[in-house]
């Protein structure tokens, strides 16, 4: 029996618990859309999407642990990098118009 299959409470295994936590994080991401939609300025939206990306890294790490697929972490790393790139690109675009790259 691996760690993920260990029962913690109420018949719920560690893996299932991690999955539930991941689902809660996705719910958090949906709520983050509130700021992305209404955010009075585009800077608010960029920040919201940045938080979403960070959230996604956490979700992927949780999923990787829960499902026993360590390569999920590779994708989480790519995410973290891309998230940064996207924010930088949009910020640069806002500050100096046209200077995206």
């Amino acid at each position: 029996m691996t760690f993920v299959e260990t029962t913690i409470f109420g018949g719920i295994t560690v893996g299932a618990f991690l999955l539930i936590v991941a689902a809660l994080f996705v719910t958090l991401a949906v709520m983050m859309l509130y700021r992305a939609i209404l955010g009075p300025t585009n800077q608010d939206r960029v920040l919201a999407v940045n938080v979403l990306g960070t959230n996604t890294v956490v979700i992927l790490a949780l999923l990787g642990a829960a499902l026993g697929e360590p390569w999920f972490l590779d994708i989480a790393l790519v995410y973290a990098l891309l998230n940064f790139l996207m924010s930088i690109a949009i910020s640069k675009f806002t500050v100096e118009r046209g200077g995206v790259i």
């Binding site: 585009n42 999407v49 979403l52 590779d74 995410y79 949009i90």
Partner: peptide, 27 residues
């Protein structure tokens, strides 16, 4: 209405879609 806002939200959409693909074991 604003194109920049649409681009930002589209990036969020893409991130969500990538998580779905990963969840279905298509890394």
């Amino acid at each position: 209405r604003d194109v920049l806002a649409a681009i930002v939200i589209f990036a969020a959409y893409s991130l969500g879609l990538a998580v779905v693909y990963t969840f279905y074991r298509a890394p």
